[in-house]
Nucleic acid binder design. Structure first.
Length: 466
RNA sequence: GGUGCCAUCGCCAAGUGGUAAGGCCGCAGCCUGCAAAGCUGCUAUCCCCAGUUCAAAUCUGGGUGGCACCUCCA
């Protein structure tokens, strides 16, 4: 398996620290609002990585955190008068529900910040003891970036001297402008946690380092985890800061490989609430089948920036449709797993830094070949078994084609409409039998007004939502 | 201003030194009562200029254009 390491900026062979075992940590959502398409993209990319690692016979421990301590959450709580937990539980549940619809497998561990406070205290105490952190007169604790000679090497940056002075003069008793809060003390009645340093709240960056130490890190290894992932924007400052804390507080580096997924734009513009084009996943899921979104969001290489637009989504759906039509052609056949060269090729493509394009090309070729053979030699049993196995493999590794074909093609059509369509199809079949093509075409026209396409096959007439 | 990324057919998009994958759209044909679906065939020399090389979309230099990050952010 090969992975592009966005810190070393090269694609290199993936070798885990422990033979056959992989630890993977991905920065998850802050649960103060609904998940948007960018969250979906990130979750999907690492879901694919998770699946591909497992298909390569690795035993994977995959942790994706839930940030449930955050200023935005607190603001929301104060404004709405709700309890913090009420808010974070709501959005955490919504997130899980939506991920489920996207076919995202639950990570092995989903640590929460609120459950990792002890691990955070431990890190802070160690950093204070070793003079990598300092306390201000207000009781805040900062990480001293000048105490880490390797600071900024992860994100390949250097410090701007002028900028540095300006910002430090500005406020906060910070030693260096880049110093970041490990602990923010709270003196009033707002929400806080008790700690060895008094009441306060942890800094965001600390959370991930602490969870990794608590759940994944092994003391005798050079790196805390094998792979650390997240959105491209997290490389700096979030990952830089995480890496610095871990490096200074423990005897290991944070991660052996770093993976960053590209951003999702909408119609060429960055998603943002101020622009009003923020596309919440829950809204997209009302209009599109979760798997269509999964397929579309995964259809471009994970490192590229992704430009979301409806036209591309619909084109992409046509490609997924082909998988389901083939599946439909083989409906009812008993499954029997057969080894094929296709699965090897597919895994090879995916194992090359998740080369999805090469994988989809292989899938399309497999589908065409299967359809061609089924057209000419419909009773080709071996081919049918192989094709079923291939489709099963695609389901397992890519999560495409996991639904029932008929349900897939009827997404978003209510029961009443379905019955109506069935009735019209029945009438049309009768007209066809009577060779009254004028009547049959008129009925087809009527059915079309429901946004439905008809297909006459040897097995009968089927319909698909367009 | 600093740092970095990208530029391949009308659209989406692989390939990163050995002579351009795949999908959508389009055209022709097979199949079909007609369609749809499916199948077959056809469609690009890779932003521009210069260089390195037997060989470059792929490496180097210079342009042009787009984008991201610079301490809220997947």
């Amino acid at each position: 398996m090969y992975i592009y390491d966005s810190v070393q900026k090269t694609k290199r062979e993936f070798v885990p620290q422990e033979r056959g075992k992989v630890s993977l940590y991905v920065c998850g959502p802050t649960v103060y609002d609904n998940a948007h398409l960018g969250h979906a993209k990130s979750a999907l990319v690492f879901d694919l990585l998770f699946r591909v690692l497992r298909a390569n016979d690795y035993e994977v421990t995959y942790a994706r955190n839930i940030t449930d301590i955050d200023d935005k959450i607190i603001q929301k709580a104060q404004k709405s008068g709700k309890e913090i937990k009420e808010i974070t539980d709501f959005y955490t549940n919504a997130f899980h529900h939506e991920m489920n619809k996207l076919g995202v497998i639950r990570p092995t561990i989903e640590p929460k910040a609120t459950e990792s406070l002890e691990a955070m205290f431990k890190l802070i105490l160690k950093l204070l003891k070793d003079k990598h952190a300092y306390k201000t007169s207000h009781g805040d604790i900062y990480f001293d970036t000048s105490s880490d000679s390797q600071y900024l090497q992860l994100s390949h940056r250097f410090q701007d001297e002028d900028d540095k002075k300006q910002r430090v003069e500005g406020s906060l008793e910070k030693k260096n402008s880049a110093d970041f809060a490990l602990w923010k003390s709270v003196n009033d009645n707002s929400i806080s946690f008790d700690s060895p340093f008094g009441k306060g709240r942890p800094g965001w960056h600390l959370e991930c380092s602490a969870m990794i130490e608590k759940h994944l890190a092994k003391p005798d290894k050079k790196f805390a985890v094998d792979i650390h992932g997240g959105g491209a924007d997290l490389l700096f400052p979030h990952h830089e800061n995480e890496a610095a804390q871990t490096r200074c507080a423990t005897n290991h580096e944070l991660s052996a490989y770093w993976m960053h997924n590209g951003f999702v734009n909408i119609d060429g513009e960055k998603m943002s609430k101020s622009l009003g084009n923020s596309f919440f996943l829950k809204d997209a899921l009302k209009v599109y089948d979760g798997e269509v979104l999964r397929f579309y969001l995964l259809s471009t290489h994970y490192r590229s920036n992704f430009n979301f637009n409806e036209e591309d989504l619909l084109n992409s759906k046509k490609r997924l449709d082909k998988i389901y039509r083939l599946k439909k052609r083989l409906f009812g056949l008993s499954f029997e797993n057969v080894k094929t060269s296709f699965s090897d090729s597919l895994l090879e493509a995916l194992s090359d830094d998740l080369n999805i394009s090469a994988s989809l090309a292989l899938i399309d070729e497999m589908i065409s070949h299967a359809n061609e053979t089924l057209d000419t030699a419909g009773k080709h049993k071996q081919l049918k078994l192989e094709t079923l196995s291939n489709l099963a493999y695609i389901e397992e590794v890519l999560g495409f084609g996991v639904k029932n074909s008929y349900e897939y093609f009827q997404f978003g059509v209510d029961k009443q409409t379905k019955e109506k369509i069935q009735m019209l199809i029945k009438q049309r079949d009768e007209a066809k039998k009577a060779r009254d093509f004028a009547a049959s075409d008129a009925l087809r026209h009527e059915i079309l007004t429901y946004g439905v396409n008809l297909m006459d096959t040897l097995q009968g007439t089927f319909w698909e939502k367009i």
